[in-house]
Nucleic acid binder design. Structure first.
Lengths: 189, 189
DNA sequence: TCCATCGATGAGACCGTGTCTCATCACCGT
DNA sequence: ACGGTGATGAGACACGGTCTCATCGATGGA
């Protein structure tokens, strides 16, 4: 793996973020992204299925980590404890580089519906994965859906605050968000 | 408004649903859809912004109705009561034709990620709209987010059951789903 | 040292989506 | 009849995304 100049994939991610931010997503062509990374269009599509995906490269990992963390929780854990375990486990994915990219990614994604759409899809995938784990553990349909919603909401709120440089660790922020959301949920009338 | 053969837009919707179901979404071209509707590719794109949109033609109306219904609720209504009012008001959108198309649409959308993605986006839009109304009415950030999630979840579950031919009226089904979800939410631990 | 292999890349043809411009045609009011 | 208006058709165009074939660079073995 990785001959010639290594890290082609990473170079493509960086080139995409930079160009989409500099010139706008629409007015940037895939060929331009590839060129900035020292590659060609064909190679871009060998690393990513489409023009939007480099911006969301880390997300499948997040889904996997959330699911793994949830599956690793003790058998007698309540749904909310399972979600907490999932959030804690996901902490592993959050490197310094991810934190730096966070705000820039949010800004770029916010500029174009096509990107918002992909973000919504990834989020729905996350929610679905988490809900499936909860159902497998015996939670009711409705309970699984709500707990998953709260977990993913906390996941994103925590990440946003963390990548804005707030708080000590991501894990603490996410847990705090989850507590807040849970309190609001039980108080709902 | 509608000269020549009237209802060009509706004919396009029907042609799209039929062809996407018959031949698959991928292997159907926009030109084919337009041709079945007795039109051309250029006219298709005058009625819809892209190939996916005819399948989701009714959804903006749903968002508007939910928002209107929520805004019409009495000033002292609780978040959940606001959501209930929104669901009741949305009932207006559900014609017999919508019910017939429901299962077919679900089936087609389920066959292709590109369509699932659009569905997730529409749903996120719905949730965002509802949450915004709730925040404007003074609900807290977290409360608005959760109430909106429950509302949209109930909206979709209700619609699925209703379009499967279940239950008396859509309004009753959606209210029932909302009650179930609310019960699960308050019982969450 | 040389060579065969294998995986990553480049080159370029190709189809479909989505945009745009210009011409056409049907309806409408006068 | 006649001109205006708005929906449509025709066709060129750029770009996204797929595919095939050729190339090249590193590796491992004789």
């Amino acid at each position: 793996m990785a001959r010639w100049e290594p890290d082609a994939r990473l170079r493509l991610v960086r080139a995409a973020i930079d160009l989409y931010a500099e010139q706008g997503y629409e007015s940037t062509t895939v060929a331009q992204v590839a060129e900035r990374a020292g590659l060609t269009k064909a190679t871009f599509f060998r690393h990513f299925p489409d023009k939007r995906e480099p911006l969301f490269a880390g997300q499948e990992e997040h889904a996997a980590l959330l699911a793994d963390g949830a599956a690793l929780a003790p058998d007698d854990a309540s749904p909310l404890e399972v979600v907490t375990a999932a959030l804690d486990h996901a902490t592993a994915a959050f490197t310094a580089e991810q934190r730096d990219w966070g705000p820039r990614l949010r800004a770029v994604v916010g500029t174009h519906d096509e990107l918002r759409e992909r973000a919504a899809f990834k989020r729905a995938h996350l929610t679905g994965t988490l809900a499936a784990v909860l159902r497998d553990r015996g939670a009711g349909e409705a309970t699984a859906a709500i707990a998953a919603d709260l977990g993913v909401e906390a996941f994103h709120r925590g990440f946003d605050r963390w990548s804005d440089g707030e708080g000590p660790s991501y894990g603490d922020l996410a847990r705090e968000e989850l507590r807040t959301l849970h309190a609001a949920a039980t108080a709902l009338r």
